[in-house]
Design a protein around this nucleic acid. Structure first.
Lengths: 197, 197
DNA sequence: CAGGGAGGTTAGCGGTCGTTAACCTGAAGG
DNA sequence: CCTTCAGGTTAACGACCGCTAACCTCCCTG
């Protein structure tokens, strides 16, 4: 898969702006006219690209969940043979990249899940669960003392830590992306270590 | 201040149910009729107790912020003379109690702030900021190597970790409140330690 | 150069929601 | 016993919102 160099399609523009607006004001707090205005067209014009407002949210949430899971699986495959600790580091790094680069999506991911149609919600939940279980396995390999429910709680808590990036102030006020990423990484490792000792 | 033993007032019932519903489906996703139904009256009946739907959210968010800050100040005063590490432990313990006992409020706290009137939002932001700064001071006392912006980021991240309780499954599926509290506490300390080393 | 589809537009419908108005009722107090 | 008032009720209004209908306008293509 080649790196994208083409201009973003209209669909992609819409999804990006919708994600930003949903994250800022909540799904029900944003009107289709606003989403349209954000990409320079009017509300009903969106229906040339999406079946409805719900469909935009569904595509966003399914997309995030798939992307996270795919990335984690890839890292797991690439790091095959490495130590468990290295694999865990790789997972943490991937999640941090996502949290820092797609902050609106991180916000949506755990906030608007209940606004989905039943089938979509089930799909997203399943993808999320797979992602969590993948982490749980790696964590338990590194910290064998952890029982499975404890490991799962620890994983959810570290997600909470890593997903705190939207609260760290506007992107400009951060001490620099690399520094922030490194801080989050150290803290995540420290949290797991304290859980598993 | 005596411990409450009286039955909850109607106002308190309403606030509690509104908090639960807002946390479940978002402020815009809940109608006044639903809130009324949750306490056994009909929608417009709520207006005998609150000026409007906004007023309920405002009272909830201001109340949480005040409660958090008041509790932290009390713990700081009570632990005067103790080591910094003990004070930090006390702060962590207080936040965990809140996160475990008032999960809907934790959810609202960082999710629906933007739905407030300007003046209310400023008030809540100010209270939140005071709470954070109080933590930052204690954290920097325990970990002097931490620069202030780094310490603030670390505090926000630990809040993310502690506030992950709503994602840990329904109250019944947790490994037990005390066990969960202890796990969260250890992880928070571990995260701060890793940030400040 | 016809024509057809992609991608817009505005007008408007139907439903929902917050809020108000008008009315009712039961219990407390003089 | 009459009044008052807290705390309800139902009806209805006005605004908003998601979505559809109907129409327009390029641009590509045979």
């Amino acid at each position: 898969m080649a790196t994208r160099t083409d201009a973003p399609t209209r669909r992609e523009q819409i999804l990006k702006e919708a994600a930003r607006l949903f994250a800022e004001r909540g799904f029900h707090g944003v009107g289709v006219d606003e989403i349209g205005a954000a990409v320079g067209i009017s509300g009903p014009g969106l229906y040339r690209h999406f079946a409805g407002k719900d469909a935009m949210l569904a595509e966003l949430l399914v997309g995030i969940s798939e992307q996270l899971l795919r990335g984690a699986k890839r890292r797991l495959a690439e790091a095959d043979g490495s130590s468990g600790a290295d694999v865990l580091d790789s997972l943490i790094e991937g999640h941090i990249d996502f949290a820092l680069d797609d902050r609106p999506l991180i916000t949506l991911h755990d906030r608007e899940l209940d606004r989905l149609r039943d089938s979509d919600r089930k799909l997203v939940r399943q993808l999320q669960r797979q992602y969590v279980e993948l982490w749980v396995e790696v964590v338990r390999e590194v910290y064998p003392a952890l029982a499975e429910p404890t490991a799962r709680s620890a994983v959810h808590s570290v997600f909470g830590l890593l997903n705190s990036t939207p609260h760290l102030g506007r992107p400009g006020s951060l001490p620099g992306r690399a520094v922030t990423a490194e801080l989050l990484h150290r803290m995540a490792r420290g949290a797991f270590g304290a859980a598993g000792e």
